[in-house]
Design a protein around this nucleic acid. Structure first.
Length: 179
DNA sequence: GATAAGATCATCT
DNA sequence: GATGATCTTATCA
C-alpha cells in the first residue's frame, strides 16, 4: 500500500512534482523513532533565471546540490537559525527543487519548524530521498485538483517579478498550512 | 486581529 | 561587510 517514491517521480517538471507531492507522506527515521506527516504545502524553485532560486547566481559551493540528480536532498540554513528541506527535481545539471513548507503534524507548519520537528539539519544535504533515513511515501490517498490552491511564493520579495510567480501549492482548508 | 523588530550565522561580495 | 526560501515575541488596536 505505502509506496516509496523513486527518482522517477522527481525527474518530472518541477511544478508537476510540487503539486503531486501534496497528499504524499514525509517519513523520517532517526534512531528507532519514525516520524511522518502528510505534505500539505510546497514551493517550486526552478533554474538560474528564477531570481528567488539559490542557483540564480550560478554554481557555487552551496547551490551545487541543486544541480545534482532528481531525488537529492537540499538542506540549508537560513536566517542563522532555521533549516529548510528541499528535494531536487528534473535532470542533473539543471538546478531546480521543491521546498517542503508544511506537513500535517503538530509544530510542523512552516519550513523552519518542519525541520526542527523532524530533526532535519545540514547533515542531510546531498543525501537522497530514497535512503533509509528520510523518504516520501505514497499511501494511495488521492488529492483532488479542487482541493489544491496555488499562490505566489513566500518570503522572496527581493526577487523582482519572480516573486509573483504562482509557484506555491497548498491544500485548501488545512490548518497546518503556514500563515 | 495586525504589524514590527530581534535573533544569529553560512554564504557570497 | 551585507543579507536572507523564518520564527518568536512584543506592542498596538
Amino acid at each position: 500500500m505505502a509506496r516509496k517514491l523513486t527518482a522517477r517521480f522527481f525527474s518530472r517538471p518541477t511544478l508537476t512534482v510540487a503539486r503531486d507531492l501534496l497528499g504524499k507522506y514525509l517519513v523520517v527515521r532517526y534512531g528507532r523513532k519514525v516520524l511522518s506527516g502528510k505534505i500539505v504545502e510546497t514551493e517550486a524553485y526552478i533554474g538560474e533565471d528564477d531570481r528567488a532560486c539559490h542557483a540564480s547566481k550560478g554554481r557555487t559551493p552551496r547551490s551545487e546540490t541543486l544541480y545534482k540528480r532528481a531525488g537529492t536532498l537540499y538542506v540549508y540554513l537560513i536566517y542563522g537559525m532555521h533549516h529548510c528541506l528541499n528535494i531536487v527535481t528534473e535532470k542533473a545539471d539543471f538546478p531546480s527543487a521543491v521546498l517542503i513548507r508544511a506537513v500535517e503534524m503538530e509544530g510542523a507548519d512552516g519550513p523552519g519548524k518542519l525541520c526542527r520537528a523532524f530533526g532535519i539539519d545540514r547533515r542531510m544535504n546531498g543525501k537522497t530521498v530514497y535512503g533509509n533515513a528520510l523518504w516520501i511515501e505514497d499511501r494511495g490517498e488521492k488529492t483532488p485538483r479542487t482541493a489544491i490552491a496555488q499562490s505566489a511564493r513566500i518570503g522572496v520579495q527581493y526577487a523582482g517579478k519572480c516573486a509573483h510567480y504562482p509557484w506555491r501549492f497548498f491544500v485548501k482548508n488545512s490548518r497546518f498550512v503556514s500563515h
